[in-house]
Nucleic acid binder design. Structure first.
Lengths: 249, 249
DNA sequence: CGGCCTTTTGAGGCTACTCAAAGCCGGTGG
DNA sequence: CCACCGGCTTTGAGTAGCCTCAAAAGGCCG
């Protein structure tokens, strides 16, 4: 992890104008600028936050994709979510407590960072922002609940299909480019699929094979292809959520 | 569900003074009073919110225990959480969208209700409240993540032990009385255990039996007993979270 | 070229599931 | 007061999905 204070001014924030994100008002823009402390660069595999530690910063993901996971004492891992550009990172772990999860970069990432110390101030002085944060938290929670239903109720094939469609949706909603709207380039390993879905690595692999044989989806190292999105949606009983523009920062 | 405007004034709120909850300041108390619209009574099994519908109200649980769950198209159910007195109900489903879950009473419940319409106002005019809500949302999220790890990584016995300890913790933190600190009276059926943990009813039952045989926990209809909490905690690899006083409303 | 990470494949076993049916308990009505 | 009913728990038997162990093959990098 590389922290640097050389930063882009919020006025030139790479997120503004990004598809799927609601542009900041000039008003807000000037306001958040006062809180920005710097930026963080992560290379693939780099750790942003570590479980059991405390974090001094809050972040907004400017670019790249992150993965958030818990680790049990005996080493088992559970991936709980992925984060895309525009996502707010850090209020997941209740505030001044130790983190319950780690956050790692799946793709090279760049983040904007704020001091956690001043969070209260940030919320107090700008109610619209507080409202947005609550809204974002509600979305995250909805998402997690859906994932729980995937973990608890679906069998292996449904789980994988669910995750593929969900990642596609999420990427599309953050303005990530996709070839033909059906090929998503994302380097997720089979071990990570397994860790997200509660499957063994071996079984995750066999499940991918089976789904490819059926022509439902093709998950090759580095790319997730959905030739027939609707079919996958039906198979996974995926309940898409309405994607209005997400606020950020 | 029974809605009534006959309400207790916030000054006499049954939650204030409740163990585990942070008392409202007189200031806040007067403020929230202006938003209270009435109360709702639920009997056991009564539905507060229904999936796919929109909800006009937000609620605070005054008394009783609720269960929140998703239903898939084919009828499979996933219980995502339980709610205890003091919990805020309703921002889980993103705001003006259809709910992704239903909420049902496990015990006779009484709730305080607010108009969703005025939520923005509520947050805007009282930043401390907004901060509290964000804090609560963060806690909920942490909790859900832990549950995900239970669903994805633990085997049946660990899952059941995890859930038992978690319910005990949660109840204790909301000031629910427990005999000897080890008997929690809560009428959770085996079908509900199964639906929360992603097990079949039959297997959930056999797992309870196995745990009882080992003397780890006794989950009889209506009561969850943990003779040796620490042993259960270790077995389930339960990572307790710090319980500072929760804010409410 | 060697080492490391990831994917791939095989074999065998256990966990958890399905189907099926009986027992239990509280509530209702004759 | 007893018979009946619906919801929940309990038990048995057989099966299948998923897991573990094991090892080989592919790809990337120094």
């Amino acid at each position: 992890m590389q922290r640097q204070s050389a930063t882009v001014a919020c006025a030139q924030c790479p997120l503004s104008g990004r598809k799927g994100l609601r542009p900041l008002t000039p008003d807000l823009l000037g306001f958040v600028q006062k809180f920005k402390e710097g930026e963080v660069q992560l290379e693939r595999g780099g750790l942003l936050l570590e479980q059991e530690k405390r974090s001094v910063h809050l972040h907004t993901l400017l670019e790249g994709v992150l993965v958030r996971f818990l680790t049990l004492e005996d080493g088992r891992r559970q991936i709980v979510n992925f984060m895309f550009p525009g996502d707010f990172v850090g209020f997941q772990g209740a505030f001044d407590d130790k983190l319950n999860h780690s956050v790692q970069a799946l793709l090279p990432a760049r983040l904007c960072s704020f001091g956690r110390r001043r969070f209260h101030e940030l919320v107090s002085e700008h109610p619209a922002l507080a409202y947005d944060l609550i809204w974002l938290a509600a979305c995250e929670e909805t998402e997690l609940e859906d994932h729980m239903a995937a973990l608890g109720q679906r069998d292996a094939r449904e789980k994988v299909a669910y995750m593929a469609v969900w990642l596609h949706d999420r990427a599309a909603a953050s303005g990530i480019s996709m070839l033909d709207g059906q090929h998503l380039d994302l380097p997720i390993t089979q071990a990570q699929i397994a860790d997200m879905l509660g499957l063994s690595l071996v079984h995750a692999h066999r499940t991918l094979k089976a789904l490819a044989r059926d022509g439902l989806l093709f998950w090759t190292p580095g790319r997730i292809s959905l030739p027939d999105r609707q079919r996958a949606v039906n198979f996974a009983q995926y309940a898409g959520r309405s994607h209005k523009q997400r606020p950020f920062i």
